[in-house]
């Protein structure tokens, strides 16, 4: 990829330690405060500001309070639709998950490059999405075994399975169950990475074609630029959809743990 001029579409994913914290470590592990960590903090702070604005607790809400209550109500109805009334106790977790991922995706799309900053999307790193996915999966396991004990394994044997098929089906279901955290984490990582790479590649087309000749710049460059506008809009949609998919699948998995089948 690096051969296409000086523009490396993968460079945007590079993690760099900031403020000279390269060697900050905890128990032998490096915990440098990186650009990725900066965006995690930014997402948390923006989310905190957003929710604080909705804490006026007025009977007749203002616009901001309305927006915050809309988001909590959205997560609540998502959980009630997928888990039932018992899903309400997961509102804090699923709300945190959804909003944190959503803000991470959207903050990474901000055109901060225009003012010389390097936007970074930490959800395009599977180290980050993997932790979130393992967290969701752990909650499913913990709730499942806490509520149903070893009976939780009946999740792997659907109703009406012929006796002969119980053992093979158990292993197939077990594999599909164990794959969940990977699919959950990789889906978000892949979607965010692909979108950002595509935008960078098209931006590379615009710059390189314009540098090559005015004729190429006007044809290829203009076409690529128009395509970029459309894909940027699509990326905003993908940012929302991926956050929603993560929250939705988490609630579907929680439903398995809460209600078995």
């Amino acid at each position: 990829m690096a051969e296409s001029g000086k523009i490396d579409p993968m460079h945007q994913f590079a993690i760099e330690p900031l403020f000279g914290t390269d060697h900050l470590s905890l128990g032998g592990f490096n915990i440098a405060f990186t650009n990725s960590a900066l965006y995690m903090v930014a997402a948390a702070v923006v989310l905190w500001i957003f929710v604080v604005g909705g804490m006026k607790r007025e009977l007749v809400p203002g616009r901001w309070q309305m927006a915050v209550e809309y988001m909590t109500g959205f997560i609540k109805s998502l959980l009630i639709a997928n888990v039932g009334e018992g899903g309400k106790k997961y509102i804090p977790y699923v709300f945190s998950l959804f909003m944190f991922i959503l803000l991470a995706n959207l903050l990474g799309l901000l055109p901060l490059g225009l003012i010389g900053l390097h936007p970074f999307t930490f959800t395009s790193h599977f180290t980050a999405t993997g932790v979130l996915a393992i967290m969701s999966f752990s909650i499913v396991l913990a709730v499942g075994f806490y509520k149903h004990g070893l009976h939780f394994f009946s999740l792997f044997v659907p109703h009406g399975t012929p006796a002969l098929m119980v053992v093979p089906l158990f292993f197939i279901e077990l594999v599909s169950f164990m794959v969940r955290p990977f699919s959950l984490g990789l889906r978000l990582f892949v979607a965010m990475t692909a979108g950002h790479v595509l935008l960078k590649v098209l931006a590379g087309f615009v710059i390189n074609s314009a540098n090559a000749s005015p004729a190429l710049g006007l044809t290829v460059g203009t076409a690529s630029f128009i395509l970029m506008i459309g894909i940027s809009a699509l990326e905003v949609l993908v940012a929302v959809i991926q956050a929603y998919v993560f929250a939705l699948l988490t609630s579907v998995y929680i439903n398995d743990a809460e209600n078995l089948h």
């Binding site: 915990i31 405060f33 960590a37 945190s96 944190f100 180290t127 980050a128 932790v131």
Partner: peptide, 15 residues
């Protein structure tokens, strides 16, 4: 390690 640490820290704060 840094990714996991900061993610747990920030998401812990959020949660």
């Amino acid at each position: 390690s840094s990714q996991i640490f900061w993610l747990l820290l920030t998401f812990g704060f959020v949660f």
